[in-house]
Write a protein that binds this DNA or RNA. Structure first.
Lengths: 225, 225
DNA sequence: TTACCGTCGTTTGTATGCAACAGACTCTTG
DNA sequence: CAAGAGTCTGTTGCATACAAACGACGGTAA
């Protein structure tokens, strides 16, 4: 299995470009409101303007840039309201995922989740916030994957792309108390899932997402004038 | 004010094309699964392939078509399993919408909903299934709009396009017993919303969507061999 | 000094050409 | 007769070229 080497013919040329431009925008090199000339990006990534244009359109859908027709493409930071809306969606979708996963039997994802929580506990004890952040990410994605609903997976993927700004730029400095609470909530979610309690799993998951979003939103400061 | 004559510079060339291709797809001229050649569309609408390509990407984002890289663009044709998955999503998203709407005060959408139910009752008594189908559509969309969550609106739009909902709802409507039950559920949903009961509204909405989906799925037979 | 008009540079939007890939069809061979 | 390899057509993906529009800048006049 050499998945890494199995280069998808040219979707790589496309998605790779999209990823790179997204990282460039999120990297903060261009301040919000700055112009992103297509020609510059084309030269920078050694492609023509055509694929750059397509990638920018996608980034517009993700809310990262704003395309003013006949004027140009500008870096745009999602508004606080948009982030709130996205978190509400996240709560609903992940609640559904947990519910669906709880309805399933013993699936491989449960093993991953158990292992994930063990590692998370270790990371918390070790104070390794970076590893913990990665494990949190894996926890949520595993539940969505484990729901065995591919359409849900697709919409969730889209949602998380739109939340990429929040994840990567507004790096929420997790309060220690919040980390403890979060791990506790994770355990509660998994317990409900293992008890095959769809309603309880959904409720626990939504509580967890809501609490996390609250934390993320209070951490996000006011907009500078 | 001559808004009609205030031609938006060239977004007209773009949006006009997008609208026309969208209507072409929705019109059913191309059956689900059919290939939409870029060259054909370009010639048909007397433009080059480049703007056609951009419009198709937008349509893919809306969920109306599926672009298989290096193969072609096809009118979306959901499998039965995908329809089930999409209905699960629909239940979750509409539940969220009803919940959010119930949290809001007296908003214009409530007036629309009350009027909608009056008209629906009339349509049921008159046996006007066509009008009823249209009103059902309006009911659901009004709730999603009334949720005041634009990101939810966007995801819902994509979901409904993928479901090709308008194709499904027509078959569902033909069951007299189901129509009576459906109207009753609509009334229950609105009542919960008017009582500003988010949990009750979400629950009622999800029950309704679930019942409708069951009906749609039994109505939709197996795929022809 | 300020408001306005014309010119210019930069950027986007569209058209076209070319190369590469996917899928189907046919021909050959066991 | 069936299976496989090779070819061949249709379609997409990308690069490049050109034209049009927007916004800024400077000059002019009141």
């Amino acid at each position: 299995m050499q998945d890494d080497l199995m280069v998808i013919p040219e979707a790589v040329g496309q998605e790779g470009l999209l990823e790179r431009i997204r990282r460039l925008v999120l990297g903060g090199e261009f301040p919000p409101g700055a112009l992103l000339p297509e020609a510059y990006l084309a030269q920078e990534f050694d492609v023509s303007r055509t694929p750059v244009r397509e990638a920018l359109k996608q980034l517009q859908h993700e809310g990262l840039v704003e395309i003013r027709p006949k004027v140009g493409t500008f870096v745009r930071e999602p508004t606080r309201r948009e982030i709130i809306e996205l978190f509400q969606l996240k709560e609903s979708l992940e609640g559904l995922a947990a519910s669906l996963l709880a309805r399933r039997g013993e699936v491989p994802e449960l093993t991953i989740l158990r292992r994930n929580l063990e590692d998370s506990d270790e990371a918390v004890l070790a104070g390794d916030t970076e590893a913990y952040a990665r494990l949190v990410h894996e926890f949520h994605w595993t539940i969505v994957r484990g729901s065995d609903n591919y359409k849900l997976f697709e919409h969730y993927e889209r949602l998380m792309n739109q939340l990429a700004y929040q994840r990567l730029v507004l790096r929420t400095v997790e309060h220690p108390g919040r980390i403890a609470a979060s791990t506790g909530e994770h355990h509660a979610v998994l317990e409900m899932i293992e008890h095959k309690d769809p309603f309880g799993a959904e409720s626990a998951m939504r509580n967890h997402v809501y609490a996390s979003s609250r934390e993320a939103l209070v951490t996000e400061p006011e907009r500078k004038p």
